[in-house]
Every structure is written in C-alpha cells, then in structure tokens.
Design a protein around this nucleic acid. Structure first.
Lengths: 263, 263
DNA sequence: CCAGTCGACTGGTCAGACCAGTTGATTTCC
DNA sequence: GGAAATCAACTGGTCTGACCAGTCGACTGG
C-alpha cells in the first residue's frame, strides 16, 4: 500500500452560492424539477437555504447562465425551470472559435469530420422515416429554388433540417449538436470575410445536387461514399476561403481511406 | 421589398449585469485581456461601470461559471483571467448526458469519432517533435507503472498529455479540445456508475500497450490503422458499461471502412 | 358583465456593513 | 543585521435592508 502520501488532500473552499446552485442543479438534472416547473421565489429560497439574498441570486445567475432556468421580473410564480438544452454547448463552442484558438481552417476541418461521420453512421443505421424526412427537405429546397428569389432564410432552414434528419438517423444527437454549433461558427466567420455570396442561384443548384447525392448514398447504405461526399463538398466550397497555411489541413482531412482522390 | 412587416422587432430587456458581463467577455475573447492578466478589483469595477457591487458580482459570477475568470478571496490583484478552456464544454456535455438527453453510448461513440480522427490526421501530418512528445509520455507511463502503486493521478495525466500531443500533431486544436471535453464527461458519468476500477495494474498494462500501438501507427503514417486502434480500444473498454440499447451504435461506429472486423 | 384600479407580490438594483483571508511593509526580538 | 512576529490596508464573500418597475389577481365602479 502507498505510504501516507495522499491520505489527506487539500480541501478547496466551497462558496455558499456554489452549494446552493449545486443543490438546485441536482434537483433539475435528477428530474425532481422537470422543465416547466417553477422555483420558489428568491425571498423564499433565502429562508429555505438560510443564506442571504445576494447568495441566492448569485446561485440563480449561475444556473441561468447555464441555461437551466429563466427568470422574469415580476413573475409571481418564480423562476422557470428550462431543463438541459444544447444552447450552452453551442455557446461554449462559439466561445472557443471566437477567441481565435481555432482558425477558420480548423473549423472547416472539424466540420468535415463531424458531417462525414454523421453521414457515415446515417448510412448504416437509418430507417425509412429518416429517409422520408431527408427527402422532404430536399423537395422543399427544390420548391424554394424554383420560385425565384425565395427567401434565403427558408432555404438554409431546410438545409439545417436536412442535417438534423441525418443526425437523427445517425443515432447520435451529440454529433448533430456539435455539427450545428460549428456550422454556425463557420457561417459567422465566413460572412465577415466575404460580405455577400457570389451567385446565390448557382450555389443553390449545387447545394441541392449535393444533398441528393448524400441522400442516395445513405439510402443505399454506401457509408464510405456518404462520408466522402461531405468532405469533398466542404473542401470545394471552403478551400478558397481558408488561410493558405491551413489549406494542407483541409486537404489531409478531405482524403478518405478508400480510393481518395485529392481534390 | 417586403412591406413594413418587420420594421420593428420586439425589444428584450437587457439586464445591467448582462451588459457588464458582455463587455468583460468581449475584452477577454478579443485578446485585450490575455490569460493570466488581472481584472480590476470589484469595488473598482463598480465605479468604472457605474453600477452597484451586486451587479458587478453577478456579472463576475457568470464569467466565472463560464470558466473565463477565477477569483480568490483576499487576492489584492483582482480576479484572474483564465482565457477560454474546454472545461465549460465538458460541463455542458456531462449535463446533457446526466439528464439523459444524450446517452453514455452516444458520448463514447462521439469520443470514438474524435479520437479516431485525431489519430488519423496525426498519422498524416505529424513531425518529429510530435513523435518525441508522444514517446516521452509513454516512457513516463512505463516508469509510473513499474514503480508499483504509483499514483493514478500522474498516470492519467500522462495519458492526457499523450492525447494532447496527438491533437497537436493533427494540427486541429478544436478536435483536441473537444476530445478532452468528451473524455472528461465520460469519466464523470462512468465513475458515478462504477465506483472503482476493477484491476488497476492490468488496465495500465493494456493502456500502455495500446498507446504504443497508436504511436507506431502514427509514426509509420498508417492512418487507417491509427484510427481503427482508437475505435477498437474504446469499444473494448466501454462496451460493457453503456446501455444495452445503444450498444449497436457503438458497434456501428467501431467499424471502419477498411477490413473492419466486428469486435 | 366588463373595464379600470389597487395592492401584494415578483425580480433587478443599489448602498452600506461586517467577516475572513491575503499581502507586504513595519516593527520587534534575538 | 537578519529572521520572526505584527499590523494595516486591502481583497472577495456574505448579509441586511431598502427602493424601483413590472406583473397579476382581486376588488370595485360603471
């Protein structure tokens, strides 16, 4: 046995507001406080936890910034429990990207990984409903593209829903959530570099064609092709926009094991 | 042009503490306040922002819970800027899994994807320094394993550093950060399910062997093998712990294109 | 029966106080 | 002179009590 080396470990002080926040979080995560339910009023929590109001408020702020609760002034019912949402995750990711820890090239590369893997898993694990949902979004894109000038917002919404359907088919919600967050970050960065897209209609055509190919690969269970399609599409679309020094990263990520052709 | 449909949009009230927190966060993310620098004292911020101390404190609490700053009572230098870290991300992930929005299986599957892709890219893009760093950590693990009962903490630190070296070699810091976050979340969830690891020394042996194989694959540039090793190791280690209904997810993710043998 | 009023709440903010802890200069003692 | 104890000026953490603007239910006047 080890000597009395780590019999005692340094104890880190736990602030009062942390204990309060942790107790409430525990109740929320365990399901005792389901989404939609209400917390007691602040002044009520003060007497229950036997702490000052500022302590209670700091605890609630922590929970609120984690997206677990929401409070509204004057609400006689108290703060509302929201439950766990992925917003916090995408917030954390967007902070990572905004702080220039990650370059645009890394961002796109990361998207390659996530999208390719979503597609790969979807090709293996999809069921009929998933395919129907994807087809539905492609049809919607076509309608929007046909009626010219159809607003861009609706088109990218259909795009997002397609990817969500793929993520659902892949059986991994985490993959989808991260992909969405990174997607948003990429859009955020890219639209600061190039003010307006060059040719919207041509882009839409290509986008629809790409989605059709992906759906086909998924439907036929061709996992490698589904993955490769995602990588290649991202490469051809973004390669010209990333920093030159990171382009080799993209090229490396775009290559797949099977008969990779360097784009 | 659209009619005066959305000329005016609902205005949502912005709390004072939010404006304070946002200003400080902006300074941190933009690099004006680099990691290691100090924020002014709370009472100083009170006069600079012209708000009450409780407002300043709530703002600081939000930043602290996001992992951007750290404060210590009595520190005459003020709160310390930590910069962006993946801690927040792993916290969000582990909350998602604890509230059963995401299963443990998805988490492990996600780790498979990230680790495999890190290894794959590292095999393609590594340089000599990267290899040296990885070798160094493997040596360290061996030393720790030889001197029996060497504390577990140091061993898992070497493990973490090995993975960090791989992430650096892959050229994608985002990949590494996310992998670390998911790793922590997995550990967080799993150690609530099984109190203690079964056989620590046997596990260490296997772990070292695995890392040696990975390093070999990376060194020889065998990207598919490096990726497959990560997937298989995670599968064999965690398959018994995930929920039975998500095991097929793991199996699907563990398969790789090339000569996949179903574990 | 409905519209307006009113009052008892709510959360958001502020001011001021005290405590315990840290730190660095000052003093004390060998 | 130098090491050890002391002290004063901070720090962040917490509590109290107050005020404001908003919300909502109940009451009231038409």
């Amino acid at each position: 046995m080890a000597p009395d080396d780590d019999l005692f470990q340094p104890v880190k002080p736990v602030r009062a507001y942390q204990r309060v926040a942790q107790q409430i979080e525990e109740r929320i995560l365990s399901g005792d406080l389901p989404p939609g339910s209400r917390l007691p009023a602040e002044r009520e929590l003060v007497v229950r936890f036997a702490v000052g109001r500022s302590t209670v408020r700091e605890a609630l702020r922590v929970l609120q910034s984690a997206g677990l609760i929401r409070s509204r002034p004057g609400d006689p019912l108290g703060a509302e429990v929201l439950g766990v949402s992925p917003d916090n995750l995408s917030q954390a990711l967007s902070r990572l990207t905004r702080s220039r820890i990650a370059s645009l090239g890394e961002l796109v590369q990361f998207r390659m990984v996530l999208d390719a893997e979503s597609n790969r898993l979807a090709a293996r694990l999809h069921d009929a409903d998933d395919l129907a949902r994807m087809q539905e979004q492609i049809d919607r894109m076509e309608r929007l593209s046909a009626s010219s000038s159809g607003n861009l917002h609706a088109f990218s919404e259909a795009d997002a829903l397609f990817h969500r359907a793929v993520a659902e088919a892949s059986g991994n919600s985490l993959l989808g959530l991260c992909a969405r967050a990174v997607h948003e970050a990429v859009v955020d960065v890219i639209e600061k570099k190039i003010a307006g897209a060059a040719d919207a209609t041509a882009w839409r055509e290509r986008s629809i064609a790409h989605h059709r190919q992906v759906l086909d690969a998924i439907r036929t269970g061709d996992a490698p092709r589904a993955a490769r399609l995602a990588r290649e599409a991202l490469y051809t679309y973004y390669a010209d926009h990333v920093e030159p020094e990171t382009r080799r990263l993209l090229a490396a990520a775009a290559q797949t094991e099977d008969a990779a052709r360097t784009p």
